[in-house]
Amino acid sequence: MSALLEARGLRKSFSWRGQWGGERRLWAVDGVDLEVGRGECLALVGESGSGKTTLGRCLLRLLEPDAGTVRFAGTDLLALSDRDLRRRRTELQMVFQDSAGALDPRLRVGAQIAEPIRIHRLAPGADVEPRVAALLETVGLARSLAERYPHQLSGGQRQRVGIARALATEPRLLILDEPVSALDVSVRAQLLGLLQELRSRLQLTMIFIAHDLAMVEQIADRVAVMYLGRLIEMGPSREVFAAPRHPYTASLLAAVPVPDPKRRSRLATTPGEIPSPLAPPAGCAFHPRCTVARQEDGAIQRRCREQVPELRTLEGDRRTACHYPRGAKEPAKLA
């Protein structure tokens, strides 16, 4: 599978003037390499503050990264002029989490879906309306909904409108930022089914951003787990779910409550919460919460405290950024 989108050394920081005048800076994305193959669905998973949304926006150049490259179908997106970028944007689209906030409350649904078609002049005026109708049907909505306003729709319907609008430009890559997180489980499953169907029918490549592994299991070919701006594990989803190599991935999996009262288990295997990206821990960012880094006497392994682990290949397509990956016979060799 050749890569459709490839990012190398991507970094993005935000800075502001601190309380006492000095400049403060936080790295939301801190050196990310990833690639998405044609027709593949990559899930980008991380808890709040991990940088997954910022990364998604950098990949589309909705945010300007500080460093790194993003190549889309051979083109360096970061080198494009604004005009060329706008033209290429038809091929890369985004679906946002908060469909109520992403849609214009004063515009009828049909007009919102028509907007990208008009802006990019993708169809002559007379063809726009039938195209909007066809798009609504593609996402499983009745044509008549084109006349409604967003507030007249349910959350699931609004999210479908957001998908229809993203599909209006016939993109090759869709970045979905937590598209189902705000929905009820019953609606969530339906929407995931729709995305799966669209993916195979329209041969879409997808990056699916989520904060919960349970949400992506059904749809992702590969998963990439983020923690404080870095990828800490990446691999085929089946393998990662079956045998996570990074302790953080393992604790994310353990925290998903199994819907079976006969199999009760400890859910909380990791203490604490993700630290503020304003003050990331030194060394491996996960070490203060990590049970592997803690030795028998309670002290934390020096390597974990001091040295940032690189994302390295373990075997096949499995990569992890851990000095002491699970299931490994020996710790990672010192670089």
């Binding site: 349910s154 699931g156 489980v185 019953s186 609606v187 969530r188 499953a189 339906q190 929407l191 995931l192 089914g193 592994l213 349970a214 949400m215 299991e217 059904q218 089946r238 779910f241 999996l253 998903v256 199994v258 819907p259």
Partner: peptide, 23 residues
């Protein structure tokens, strides 16, 4: 039953979560 069928399972014990049509 429909609610139970909507719950994602991580252990691969079921291929696909089903939703409930309508609202």
């Amino acid at each position: 039953r429909a609610l139970l069928a909507s719950v994602p399972r991580l252990d691969g014990s079921r291929s696909k979560a089903e939703g409930i049509a309508g609202r």
